[in-house]
């Protein structure tokens, strides 16, 4: 695959209403709440795209003590922009066992957002990485995941660089409205400063859904929860004896074997091929239609 040439990140000529969906992070060492690393990168991407026009949203429990502090961490990033407006975050109240997706979808629709940025997966809670997909499905939007940078956005479509393994990048053009899930390799977030964090506004928006439509996550009620166990790591056996081979092994692109590239197929044919493949890999049962 040809490596795309990096282009200058262009500011939007006409501003598209942009929002970043943020979550409360969990520090890998201390477990303390704070900015989530990928979400902070999404906010950084949004700020460099639309400046202080970027609005933030979080669905969570306003009563939770540490939440305000982590959310202020994102508001503290509103500095060094063209104008010195303070940040604003909409807090969508969500109780325990609630489902964030309908709330976020309603908020995105109501506020006229056409470009939503978020991290790929939360650092605590379910952390399933599904919220982006579920939101896009519900809203009928496009979704691009693993995004390393936004190169261009013109009100109709957005050009992004998608991060692939071994530092490869793929340029994608996505139609608006769309949801972009930001990868950990995106530009590092700016420092969160105490002053802007203190001045930023957190507005509670609690009239998004009609009262009879409670955003309960029905599935999760039946789930069995237990602390995650560290996955055993495969020991890395270094077979080569010289540095050159080790370097080549480390830098090698993952080579897929046995695959085939299919082009110029009708959608039906393509679907047929995919189903055959999934059956061959025993992902679909033989009799599954």
């Amino acid at each position: 695959m040809p490596q795309p040439e990096p282009r200058d990140t262009a500011k939007m000529p006409q501003r598209v209403k942009t929002a970043a969906l943020v979550s409360s992070g969990r520090h890998p060492v201390s477990g303390r709440a704070g900015r989530a690393r990928e979400d902070a990168r999404a906010v950084e991407m949004g700020l460099s795209l639309v400046g202080a026009d970027l609005s933030l949203a979080h669905a969570g429990d306003p009563e939770q003590a540490s939440l305000r502090e982590s959310l202020q961490g994102y508001l503290g990033m509103y500095h060094g922009l063209d104008d010195d407006r303070d940040g604003q975050l909409s807090l969508l109240p969500l109780g325990e066992g609630g489902d964030a997706v309908p709330l976020l979808a309603a908020w995105l629709e109501r506020s006229g957002v056409r470009l939503a940025l978020t991290g790929q997966r939360a650092e605590c809670g379910e952390g399933s990485g599904m919220v982006g997909y579920l939101l896009a499905e519900r809203l009928g939007w496009a979704i691009a995941t693993g995004v390393a940078a936004i190169e261009h956005c013109d009100g109709e479509r957005v050009t992004v660089l998608q991060a692939l393994p071994q530092g490869q990048r793929r340029r994608l053009e996505v139609r608006l409205p769309c949801l972009i899930a930001v990868d950990a390799v995106a530009e590092a977030p700016r420092q969160s400063a105490f002053g802007p964090a203190r001045r930023g506004r957190i507005d509670i928006v609690d009239d998004l859904l009609p009262p009879d439509e409670s955003p309960l996550d029905a599935d999760s009620a039946d789930w069995h929860w237990q602390p995650a166990r560290a996955r055993p790591k495969r020991l890395k056996v270094v077979k080569s004896t010289n540095a050159r081979d080790r370097f080549k092994a480390a830098a090698a692109k993952s080579s897929a074997s046995g695959g085939q590239v299919l082009t110029d197929l009708s959608p039906e044919e393509a679907a047929e091929k995919l189903i055959d493949y999934l059956r061959a890999e025993k992902i679909l049962a033989q009799d599954d239609q």
Binding site: H27, V29, G80, Q191, A193, G195
Partner: peptide, 29 residues
Amino acid sequence: TLEKGETPEKGAAAIDNLIATDNPGGLDN
């Protein structure tokens, strides 16, 4: 630092670590 958030890079990292882990190295206290 407090208003502009422009502490030099390593300094900002040390501050973030102090906030998260109570020591500038970001180590487990």
